[in-house]
């Protein structure tokens, strides 16, 4: 077997965290990707999917993670929910990071009125109570799978914006940035050539943490009934459904909760790997690996 070449030059602890994180996310993603082959998540099997008393079945040979109160296969549902939750979480994480980074760079580099405007908006973004504001936005936006993406993006962009803004302010004073200004280089090129590459470490370390938080936020919203609309499963709404059955069918709660936990843990381990590598002086390329 070929040795794993990912992050081969990194310190061992950093590499271990990173690889553990990648393995976890990879495993969860694999199950999510295999969803169509793991059974029909919507088929309500009242004949064999429920106990004689009409209760959900626990884990067994035909249903590795048991069935829910409608006789649907929990593994199939958790896997499909993985597709939904991961796509929403990762998409929202990337969008909020991109939006925040753009806002932060523009505010930090151009200064003046633009800076004042963007940073006051950022302050508002930072002051929002996330869950409450998320619920309010839910009421204002049309339902659908894109709604949580939009909401999470709007809730999360301000944090990276603030970080990138501070870093950009610092970069603007660097000699090579001032040199580029003094030689007549166009501003947008200075931003792209001299400032953006120096934000790499910050963005790469922040991205997985943002993804973890976004997946959690999606689960929170769906749990509260404000995220992914039923009957489409997501980890959040499955946890919500399973909560009522904790006493007699704990697997309905534990299965989606475990997936959510492993995903969050995976992203945080990746972030930890980046952080440790950075603190040991490793410099990242955009692909990081």
């Amino acid at each position: 077997m070929a040795p794993i070449t990912i992050a081969s030059g990194w310190p061992i602890e950093a590499r271990r965290s990173l690889l553990a994180g990648i393995a976890l996310i990879g495993a969860v993603s694999l199950i999510a990707l295999l969803a169509p082959w793991l059974g029909d998540p919507y088929y309500q099997d009242f004949a064999t999917g429920l106990s004689p008393a009409g209760l959900p079945l626990g884990p067994n040979h035909t249903h590795p993670l048991g069935t829910d109160s409608l006789g649907r296969d929990v593994l199939a549902r958790v896997a499909l929910a993985g597709r939904v939750s991961l796509s929403i979480g990762i998409l929202a994480a990337l969008l909020s990071l991109a939006l925040g980074a753009t806002v932060g760079m523009m505010a930090g580099f151009y200064g003046g009125f633009l800076e004042a405007l963007l940073m006051r908006l950022t302050d508002i973004g930072l002051a929002l109570p996330t869950t409450l504001a998320g619920l309010a936005m839910t009421a204002l936006l049309p339902a659908g799978l894109l709604r949580p993406v939009v909401i999470i993006t709007l809730l999360f962009w301000a944090y990276p914006a603030r970080l990138v803004y501070n870093e950009t302010l610092r970069m603007r004073r660097r000699g090579f940035v001032e040199a580029a200004v003094a030689m007549g280089e166009a501003r947008y090129r200075i931003l792209l050539r001299h400032i953006l590459p120096h934000l790499k470490t910050l963005l790469l370390t922040y991205a997985p943490m943002n993804a973890a938080a976004a997946v959690m936020m999606e689960a929170t919203l769906s749990y509260l009934g404000a995220g992914v609309p039923l009957p489409t499963p997501s980890w959040g709404n499955m946890i919500g459904e399973g909560q009522g059955a904790l006493a007699f069918a704990p697997h309905l709660f534990l299965a989606p909760a475990a997936f959510l936990l492993l995903t969050t843990l995976g992203f945080l381990l990746i972030a930890e790997g980046f952080k440790q590598a950075h603190s040991r002086g490793i410099r990242f390329s955009w692909l990081a690996l």
């Binding site: 000699g175 090579f176 040199a179 007549g184």
Partner: peptide
Amino acid sequence: RRRIGFIFQDPYDALD
């Protein structure tokens, strides 16, 4: 700026 060259004090900071 096209007609002015410059050299800064700290060469470690002046080059990207």
